[in-house]
Design a protein around this nucleic acid. Sequence first.
DNA 1: GCGAATTTGTACGTATGTATC
DNA 2: AGATACATACGTACAAATTCG
Lengths: 85, 85
Amino acid sequence: MQVLYVDLVVDPYAPEPLYVQVAASLRAKIESGELAHLAPLPSEKAIEQEYEVSRDTARRAIGQLRDEGLVFTIPQRGTYVGPRP
Amino acid sequence: MQVLYVDLVVDPYAPEPLYVQVAASLRAKIESGELAHLAPLPSEKAIEQEYEVSRDTARRAIGQLRDEGLVFTIPQRGTYVGPRP
DNA sequence: GCGAATTTGTACGTATGTATC
DNA sequence: AGATACATACGTACAAATTCG
């Protein structure tokens, strides 16, 4: 039986690392405005469940966006859209 | 019986995270010249054994020095002292 | 050139701590 | 008090590229 993954945002068989794919998906939501300025990003656990990845992968994705200056994290609070205030 | 850890560079009971302590130790070796410009840092595995920490902790320590611009990493090669060339 | 060893990268799991809500 | 959320720290496994004998 053939299995397709067309409904998945991330593809474990793609050459790009999973965390890069998750980051790209989140980045798209930021750039489209779906995640507005100062809006909270999905939590690590929410990303785990939404994308069906490990927490490690969720954290890497957020870390990449943080490195890009797109989001900032407040420890024990969450991660928000925008440059570090 | 009282146990002291005076011989350990890192102290699991200290308030600072282990990876910060490992990074501080490596930073001191760089600043003292023990690790000269372009010299290779100990590999992740070597750091694991030297400091008796997990690879996760070793990687975090190296990552911190990289964030500080003190070292740069060449994938599948190693990490070297100096700014990214 | 080949194969083994080395080294970093990615990905998963689990546990604990701490701060916030 | 309990749930939520991020930070740290341990472990394992496999992949990919480089280095070395």
